[in-house]
């Protein structure tokens, strides 16, 4: 199987996690959240976080909160665009955006 040429992926980051989510440019933001929900099924400890309890954002300094019913193209999201996600902790409480830095310098040296 291969991705259709018009298919893209976004890299969604949260803490020490990165989700490579395949999508189409005209997919709605909601679709990306639902795919993250699917990805979480792999991992038992985060199992149960559903699309309703996620917020997608542009990385800082923009940090725009992305609306469910807007398409990726609306925010000019392209192939390999980095986004951030936070989960809802309780009714009025959301995680703060905290993403592990992954530049070359902070990477572990090979042994």
């Amino acid at each position: 199987m291969s991705l259709a040429p018009e298919e893209i992926y976004v890299r969604v980051k949260r803490q020490n996690q990165t989700y490579f989510i395949p999508c189409a440019p005209d997919d709605k933001i909601r679709v990306v959240k639902e795919k993250i929900e699917q990805a979480l099924k792999v991992s038992e400890k985060d199992d149960g976080v559903t699309a309703d309890h996620m917020r997608l954002l542009m990385p800082p300094p923009k940090s725009t909160v992305l609306e469910d019913d807007q398409a990726l193209t609306h925010y000019e999201i392209k192939n390999d665009t980095e986004l951030h996600v936070v989960f809802q902790i309780s009714e009025n409480l959301w995680e703060t955006v905290a993403v592990e830095s992954m530049d070359i310098a902070s990477s572990a040296a090979p042994s």
């Binding site: 992926y9 020490n16 996690q17 990165t18 490579f20 993250i36 990805a39 099924k41 792999v42």
Partner: peptide, 24 residues
């Protein structure tokens, strides 16, 4: 068989990727 698989790096960071991409 989940739609995604998880890869864990040396530092313990978690990467979720599409299973079809991984196997192809």
């Amino acid at each position: 068989t989940t739609q995604f698989v998880k890869l864990v790096s040396a530092e313990g960071s978690e990467f979720y990727i599409d299973r079809n991409v991984a196997v192809s």
